[in-house]
Simulated scan of single mutants.
Amino acid sequence: MTSADRSAADAPSPAPRKKVGRRPGGADTRAAVLESARAEFAARGYEKASMRAIARGAGVDAALLHHYFGSKDRLFLAALEFPVDPEQVVAHVLGGDRGVVGERVARFVLGLWEQPAVLERLLALIRAAATTEAVAQLMREFAVGQLIGRIAAGLEVEDPELRTELMVSQIIGLAMVRYVIKVEPLASATTEELVPLLAPTFQRYLTGA
């Protein structure tokens, strides 16, 4: 072996090259996707935000977003930690006997609020929407497209959008007075006390009867 060969053999091996490419899946990846989604939704709004842009911001392939969340509305719910799945709300409004839809909705809403985690997040979103226009805009776009519009499309009454929005306004107002301002005796009233009072109003909004 020549001196040149020995020098080459003794030389340190080159450091392994770092792999370059998309971020692999995992808990950190999911957190990065949610962070990117919040930024994209805030900057562009719900309708204009794209899954590709969110994936690009997180450094992942767009297919991974569909693997984790399935769709843009599911990603939106996760990013904003929205406490209620709109599909559940729509099912409770449009499914079952329309003759008792008012009572069904009232029990569903009050039942959700009895879950501390749901109530806490819902009130946080209401407060944020009341004080931050960006959050209000996101909630407005999402609520109209994924909740109010879908309910209105299934109602067989005049002015279905207006009626649905009136019901939603009553629900949000109830949450504010009962849980934020905590006006008595409403704040301490039980579900069984409130349902008979709320049900006729919801029934009239949703069916016109």
Results as ranks from 00 to 15, higher is better:
135 V>L: 04
103 E>H: 03
107 R>D: 06
62 A>E: 11
157 V>G: 07
203 Q>I: 03
99 G>H: 06
87 E>R: 13
69 F>H: 00
40 E>V: 12
199 A>H: 02
194 L>R: 05
127 R>V: 14
202 F>P: 02
193 E>V: 09
40 E>M: 10
48 K>W: 12
205 Y>W: 05
35 E>W: 02
7 S>L: 15
56 R>P: 06
59 G>D: 02
148 I>G: 01
155 L>V: 10
92 H>K: 13
182 K>G: 12
158 E>Q: 08
55 A>I: 04
147 L>K: 02
5 D>Q: 15
161 E>R: 14
85 D>H: 06
155 L>I: 12
115 Q>S: 11
198 L>T: 03
11 A>L: 09
74 R>W: 01
168 V>M: 12
174 L>N: 12
129 A>R: 04
45 G>Y: 04
18 K>F: 13
113 W>P: 07
92 H>N: 15
102 G>S: 05
206 L>W: 02
82 F>Y: 11
93 V>K: 01
202 F>I: 01
140 R>Y: 13
124 A>H: 07
204 R>W: 07
78 A>L: 01
45 G>S: 04
133 E>V: 14
8 A>V: 14
56 R>A: 14
69 F>P: 00
99 G>D: 10
138 L>W: 01
2 T>M: 08
64 L>K: 07
90 V>C: 06
172 I>S: 08
16 P>K: 11
41 F>N: 00
182 K>T: 13
148 I>Q: 06
198 L>N: 03
176 M>A: 14
166 L>C: 10
13 S>A: 15
26 G>M: 07
101 V>M: 06
136 A>W: 04
11 A>M: 08
196 P>V: 08
142 F>W: 08
209 A>L: 13
179 Y>V: 08
35 E>Q: 11
192 E>K: 05
4 A>C: 09
37 A>H: 00
140 R>K: 14
45 G>D: 05
21 G>T: 10
75 L>A: 02
101 V>A: 10
151 I>T: 05
89 V>C: 03
6 R>C: 11
192 E>R: 10
53 A>F: 05
149 G>R: 03
26 G>Q: 11
27 A>Q: 15
20 V>W: 13
23 R>S: 07
149 G>H: 04
201 T>M: 14
132 T>P: 11
25 G>M: 08
110 L>R: 05
188 S>H: 09
75 L>W: 00
82 F>K: 01
94 L>K: 03
173 G>S: 02
76 F>L: 03
20 V>A: 15
